[in-house]
Simulated scan of single mutants.
Amino acid sequence: MGKFYLKLFIISLIAAFCIFFGVDLAGKGVERVQGPASAGSAVKSAAAAQPPAKPEAKAAQPAKKPETSNSKPEQEVAQREQVTADSGINRVSNKAGDLLQIIAYHGIKFFVSLLDGIFG
């Protein structure tokens, strides 16, 4: 009877590892698609907690100067250059991340089939 409980404990540990690893992997995938959830919710809750400002306080602040039309195209060109410079690195890192996800998926599948073969 002792061996049965040892096997059950080992299976439970492996199942818990697979579940937590899968949840972590899914969470990272969601963050990659939608962005980090904690930053957005913190900003929304902070904005909701603050009372609206009084109109008199807004009128007392000096008005901001409008940006000149010459600075905008320069900023857009700089942003485009940075995006094209990082695109090679981004592609490599995205492919590496996809490879790790595939390896994790097949690794979990292998452990499940191994346990099924042993105890099934």
Rank of each mutant, 00 (worst) to 15 (best):
G27Q: 08
K72E: 10
A96G: 06
I14E: 03
F119T: 05
Q61F: 02
F9R: 07
Y5W: 06
I103S: 01
P55G: 05
S69G: 14
I108W: 01
R80V: 12
A39K: 02
A16G: 02
S69L: 10
P62H: 00
P36S: 13
Q79F: 06
G27I: 03
I108R: 02
A59C: 03
T68I: 04
D86V: 09
A60E: 15
R80P: 08
E67G: 05
I10Q: 07
G88R: 12
V33Q: 12
K64A: 00
V77S: 03
A39P: 00
L100R: 14
V77Q: 12
I14W: 02
A39W: 01
N70F: 04
G97S: 09
Q34A: 10
P52T: 02
I11C: 07
A63G: 01
K58G: 06
L25W: 07
M1A: 15
G120M: 02
K95M: 14
F110P: 04
L114S: 04
E67P: 01
V43P: 00
E31K: 14
A15W: 03
Y5F: 10
A78S: 13
V30K: 11
F20E: 00
A26L: 12
V33N: 04
C18N: 01
G120F: 00
S87Y: 15
N70C: 09
I11Q: 05
A48H: 04
A60W: 01
P52L: 06
K72Q: 06
V23L: 14
V112K: 06
A60H: 03
N90Y: 10
H106W: 13
K44R: 11
A104V: 10
A16W: 14
N90C: 05
P51G: 08
G29S: 14
P73N: 07
V92A: 10
S45Q: 11
A26C: 04
Q101F: 13
A49C: 02
F20W: 08
L6Y: 00
I14T: 12
A42Q: 04
A78E: 15
Q82W: 12
P36R: 14
K58A: 10
K65Q: 06
K7E: 07
Q34C: 04
A57L: 09
L13S: 02
L8I: 01
A63L: 03
F9S: 15
A15C: 08
I118Y: 06
K28P: 00
Q101L: 10
E76I: 06
A60G: 09
P55N: 06
I102K: 04
G29P: 01
K28S: 14
E67M: 11
A49W: 00
L99G: 14
Q34V: 09
M1N: 11
S12Q: 08
S12G: 15
S12K: 11
A42M: 05
T84E: 13
N90F: 10
V77N: 03
K54A: 09
E76V: 11
S41L: 10
D116Q: 08
A16Q: 03
A78N: 08
I118P: 00
Q79H: 06
Q61C: 05
S93F: 15
L100P: 01
E31C: 05
V23P: 01
I14H: 02
R91K: 08
L99W: 05
F4L: 13
S38V: 13
I19M: 11
K44V: 09
A48L: 05
A60K: 05
M1F: 03
E74D: 15
